[in-house]
Design a protein around this nucleic acid. Structure first.
Lengths: 213, 213
DNA sequence: ATGTACACGTGACCC
DNA sequence: TGGGTCACGTGTACA
């Protein structure tokens, strides 16, 4: 609702600041007269102080608006496939996005990744610290499939003091991709595991070679 | 900036609507007089139309504000651990949340779920359609570990016409947990796989029993 | 007293 | 043209 003070403030603001800045056909004298006559408020220090305060106020409000609108802009940028860029739509789409992402996360947390990683055609070995905090190392490698591969890997793992938390293997077209989650592996153990796995990947052990031929 | 029209609009608004609703000591007659005298604008149809339009306008603007603020409220509700509830903060936290969730999703998509599911102590079998659209079935089961389990599972899978897209096994304390992603399985094949796996879980095949004893 | 945050009505602008 | 969106300055309440 528009209060009386609000209306008066508009008049005061117009008279004291705006009228001097912008040329206007507004009958300035009339307003100042009526203003003074009806309320007997002289153009005093108090009035000027009030106007200064109003200026500060509007500037602060502008800063607030800019802060908020800046966030709207970043939202508009990070939102995918946004057509209508108006504020309400941005918020609605953002909410949709958050809910969607949360659903996705909870699904991925129980189901695991949807898309399947196939064995690489070239021999590859990769060790990465999975999540720094827990000392879990994830070893991924692709190599030629052969019957004794499993036990060769087991032997390689036995040579370093560490626990295999989880393992995953996939075989396709004579190639095998393996992922091992290893826990409690020092930096030296990590290097040892890496070189041992490299050997396992490329040359069959002597006993197994006999077995396959 | 405050324009002349704006100031006048405040006065008109005050005079025509507010003054009647709220009792006020404001010199109403004075304003209406000066208004009429200085611009010779009678309280005509045109003026009333203008006021009606202004009312519609402000009401529409209020609806717009409510729409936006409603979205703010839902954001405040779905945001976790929000302390400051002011608009700018809500937007900032929302942006943070979206980025965080996206990072989480991309990490889960490559690494898989962080927390490891251990083999259940009790024998369990569970088949779920992983993502309806692709006809992939995820078969999860925990059972006692034994040497021929692998080949028994392979035989069970061979009895239904379907491809194993991916497999995951974990053994801990004599128990094994297996997850199989099977593709191209009809509803009848699903039932068959389920019963076959149930058998595999509980009783070793004849050949393998000989091997283990 | 000082600042922060919000709702409001309004002028401007764009289909 | 109106219907919708925005920025603005202001009133007001709260700390």
């Amino acid at each position: 609702m528009v209060s009386f003070q609000q209306s008066m403030q508009h008049i005061r603001n117009y008279y004291y600041s705006e009228a001097q800045m912008i040329g206007s056909s507004f009958p300035r004298r009339f307003i100042s007269q009526t203003y003074k006559n009806s309320f007997s408020k002289p153009r005093s220090n108090a009035a000027e102080i009030k106007l200064l305060a109003a200026k500060k106020h509007s500037e602060a409000e502008k800063r607030r608006r800019m802060r908020i609108n800046g966030q709207y802009d970043t939202l508009r940028n990070i939102l995918p496939n946004i057509i209508k860029k108006d504020k309400a739509t941005v918020l609605v789409e953002t909410i949709k996005q958050v809910k969607e992402l949360r659903k996705k996360v909870s699904k991925l947390e129980v189901d695991g990744p949807k898309e399947v990683k196939f064995p690489s055609g070239a021999d590859r070995l990769n060790l990465v610290k999975c999540n720094g905090e827990e000392g879990i190392v994830k070893a991924t490698f692709s190599c030629e499939d052969r019957p004794e591969l499993m036990s060769a890997i087991a032997r390689a793992l036995g040579s370093v003091q560490a626990n295999v938390i989880k393992a995953e293997m996939m075989t396709l077209g004579g190639r095998t991709r393996s992922v091992l989650w290893v826990q409690g592996l020092g930096d030296e153990g990590l290097g040892k595991l890496k070189s041992t796995l490299k050997v396992v990947m490329h040359k069959p052990t002597f006993r197994m070679r006999h077995f396959t031929q």
